[in-house]
Design a protein around this nucleic acid. Structure first.
Lengths: 248, 248
DNA sequence: GCAAAAGTGTTGTCCTTACACCCATGC
DNA sequence: GCATGGGTGTAAGGACAACACTTTTGC
């Protein structure tokens, strides 16, 4: 057999193999997939989450996290990024996958599988450029019922956040660029639902060396103003590998 | 308006609302979804994973984790349980979701989204009742190339395992019912890829109080036999909440 | 001057780490 | 008796938890 014939035979065989694979995939049931984005922020000493009014009449009045269907030619994380951009105008947000939700009856319109994503951001920094469907920030603590299984998804996001914030100093994403230690501590206390000793808290963060003293102070507070700090992102990135837990 | 008419109107409105929801879902692109199960075991001081020979000719010779498509009427975790049962005959295995994989070209037969699940089990206890497609245990350390993106999925499973085993004493699932402290330590060392101080390791586990002395000893070892222990599952379940990290 | 929060150090306890020798068994 | 791994204790250092008083500002 000539080399040419060999090559041809191999190519034909590859084609055939591909066809087999394609035929197999065509036998798979197909399902609608959506992604849902749980976006946390922090404002007025309260943990908040970004919700829209569900556009489905069956959920009259109920709120929903930001979600939409996944297109056939996009990855799930790309879909999540796109949806966030479409719904809020924000496009520089890091999203983390937190899990899938696939109960058969979770969507009243039929079977829909969803994958939930989560993010933290600074409310002041990320202005909402689009506010259709009454998009706005809700206090997490006052949310009761939600559309779909979104309360479950929100709860999963909250558990993820509580865990994550103890493994990485992510809380900074939720704060303004310059913040006082009191604000930082309020944030941790709000998310973890505990109170923390002020001196030990300050010592811990001081010893991590991730705070940069801006030499500025709080203004317009009816008490002694606190120092304002910035987060040292470079140092954090460098040492990322070493972070396992913050341990409160 | 009579009460009856009201009720009727409401029912009609509900029907209409449902129809709207159904129509909406019908506009969503549909995709094939699969689940893939990364099943870890431990034998001969080696971390192992359960693989089958890919039945796709395009992956001639390459290995694959256990996966299959999700049916339209089953939840993802149910699919994972079913697949494990179908492929191995095992039906008492706890599976944890580790994430989705949705690259457009990850399957040669066309776009397929997969969600990966992970489990740990005791090789001796969970005999494979089915071994089609050359199903068997492979040393994790010697796996190079795999079918699909399964090497990535395996790596994600491994990272998940390394993290999990430091948060919960899950390692016991990988060991026989009765095991020596040396076996337990070998397991941790194999998974974490480190060496640990023997005395400190024993102290740590002794202080956790999760080990029950069986008063039995290893047999047929060419050296002083070690004590055999059992894992105290009840105590672990009771204190589950408190576990955050084991800290090596 | 008073209310309100900022800022700061020390001590005891516990946990972690590092480290070396004798013991029981099979061959 | 020798090779192999089993079994054990201690001391030093570091991290964490608990705790109270003085300082600065606005009113």
């Amino acid at each position: 057999m000539s080399k040419k014939t060999n090559t041809l035979a191999a190519a034909t065989s590859n084609q055939a193999d591909l066809l087999v694979a394609q035929t197999l995939v065509q036998t798979y049931p197909q399902l609608p997939i959506t992604v849902d984005c749980v976006i946390f922020g922090f404002e007025d000493n309260e943990l908040k989450v970004l919700l829209i009014r569900s556009d489905l009449a069956v959920f009259k009045g109920l709120w929903s996290v930001l979600g939409d269907n996944v297109q056939s030619d996009e990855k799930l994380d790309e879909a999540a990024t796109r949806i966030l951009k479409e719904r809020t105008g924000m496009d520089d947000v890091y999203l983390d996958e937190i899990g899938s939700f696939s109960e058969l009856n979770r969507h009243p319109g039929g079977r829909v599988v969803t994958v939930a994503y989560c993010s933290l951001l600074n409310i002041k920094h990320h202005q909402l450029k689009i506010t259709a469907n009454e998009l706005h920030w809700h206090k997490v603590s006052s949310i009761q019922e939600m559309a779909f299984d979104h309360k479950q998804i929100l709860d999963a996001g909250l558990r993820w956040l509580q865990k994550r914030i103890q493994e990485h100093p992510l809380g900074f994403n939720l704060l303004p660029e310059k913040f006082s230690l009191r604000e930082l501590q309020n944030l941790y206390e709000a998310i973890l639902g505990t109170t923390l000793d002020r001196r030990n808290f300050r010592k811990k963060f001081a010893s991590m060396g991730l705070l940069v003293d801006t030499k500025e102070y709080e203004q317009d507070v009816p008490h002694r103003p606190g120092k304002l700090y910035k987060f040292n992102y470079e140092k954090y990135e460098k040492n990322k590998r070493k972070w396992i837990a913050i341990d409160f």
